[in-house]
């Protein structure tokens, strides 16, 4: 019988705890496949965040450190400095990276640390049950913006790639989405490129992945995928923001 799909051995053989329709699982797979295809699983060290993806340390078949909320880039900085030949990746959500860890991500990027950051932007705090994130859209209803995000009261959502791409250095930054097959394929390409650049000894890489949270958005999985197209991508345009070399 022909094998048409095989789970990457870089993913541990355990069930993921994510909600139905959540795209964390897809992104995990893309990371695992990239690591596998580049043949660097034996020297990969991942950093799990605080948030829904905290258990990432159980999902990847490589050494992992769990980091305090927002601090993954600092932890990753040090691991890479200790083991320069390792392939270090941090997996962070939007609250983690763009709010409490804003300083860490800016400075890791500014130092052009040779690490790869996968940034999951789903416009909401997932694990704590749907509070407003730094990337929640104007007017978006969350459990802490019940009347919709009022930009006059709490400001505008942060476009991380656009903000970081002003930094000098050899960084690579791209925004992708995983809400349809075409976008998933493009996301895979970007994530693999981010890892590839690290393997080649190039600088900091960050891939922002527009992701879904049907549970906290109060939508069906299909509606959530559509919401990414209709609401998120217009505010967060897809594309490469820095380091678009081939």
């Amino acid at each position: 019988m022909a094998v048409v799909f095989k789970k990457s051995p870089v993913l541990a053989d355990v069930p993921l705890h994510y909600c139905p329709g959540c795209t964390h699982g897809i992104v995990h797979r893309l990371i695992a496949e990239s690591i596998e295809e580049l043949g660097v699983a034996d020297r990969a060290i991942g950093i799990a965040p605080v948030g829904c993806a905290v258990f990432a340390y159980n999902y990847f078949n490589c050494d992992m450190q769990q980091a305090a909320h927002g601090r993954a880039p600092a932890v990753g900085t040090a691991i890479k400095r200790v083991h320069p030949d390792s392939i270090v990746f941090a997996y962070q959500g939007d609250g983690d990276l763009a709010s409490i860890g804003a300083a860490e991500i800016v400075h890791a990027a500014a130092r052009d640390e040779k690490i790869t950051v996968i940034f999951i932007n789903n416009a909401v705090y997932g694990m704590t049950h749907g509070q407003m994130a730094p990337t929640s859209l104007p007017g978006q209803v969350t459990t802490t913006s019940p009347y919709g995000r009022d930009v006059n009261h709490c400001g505008y959502p942060i476009r991380v790639c656009e903000m970081l791409c002003t930094l000098e250095g050899n960084q690579y930054m791209e925004r992708v989405a995983v809400n349809n097959v075409k976008n998933v394929l493009a996301a895979k390409k970007a994530i693999k490129k981010a890892f590839q650049r690290q393997v080649e000894g190039k600088g900091f890489s960050l891939v922002e992945v527009l992701s879904t949270c049907p549970t906290n958005w109060g939508m069906s999985p299909q509606e959530a995928l559509k919401w990414v197209d209709e609401k998120m991508i217009p505010y967060y345009p897809l594309g490469c923001y820095k380091g678009g070399d081939k």
Binding site: Q65, A67, R71, V75, I79, H83, A103
Partner: peptide, 14 residues
């Protein structure tokens, strides 16, 4: 805050 988390990373890395 970053400094102590770097220590955590480096110490964890051995």
């Amino acid at each position: 805050v970053a400094a102590i988390n770097m220590v955590y990373g480096a110490g964890g890395a051995g």
